[in-house]
């Protein structure tokens, strides 16, 4: 199960995801992000994301392509160590900026 919230912080759209991103829940995030404005700055707050599989990574990659294709920026923040490991091993860490917390991300991205 996942829970998704959208918070607008100035010029940055924060999407906070709680729970697990696996093959059964990832389509919900995909749908949610497809309905979001793709231009501008998008921050995926994963502080309460307890799990991500390759199905979840696929959605993150797709969103990154969409946002960058429109000239915007996408970053993630708040990864727990196990999720961070998956980002590292998948090579996503070299592709997508990772910030330790939402506060740190907003300070850098604004």
């Amino acid at each position: 199960m996942i829970h998704i919230d959208r918070i607008v912080a100035g010029t940055i759209v924060v999407t906070a995801v709680k729970g697990r991103l696996d093959s059964s829940s990832s389509p919900k995030l995909e749908e949610f992000l497809a309905g979001a404005p793709s231009e501008g700055t998008l921050l995926l707050d994963f502080a309460e994301l307890t799990y991500i599989s390759s199905a979840g990574l696929r959605v993150v990659l797709k969103a990154t392509k969409m946002v960058r294709g429109a000239g915007g920026t996408l970053a993630v923040c708040g990864l727990i160590p196990q999720v961070h490991e998956v980002f590292d091993v998948s090579g996503f860490s070299s592709l997508i900026p990772i910030h330790p917390s939402r506060e740190a991300a907003l300070a850098t991205m604004t």
Binding site: L57, K65, L95
Partner: peptide
């Protein structure tokens, strides 16, 4: 980024 695909990524992980 443009060349990345996630096919085979699960097994790689």
């Amino acid at each position: 980024l443009e060349e990345r695909h996630v096919g085979g990524l699960g097994v790689h992980l």
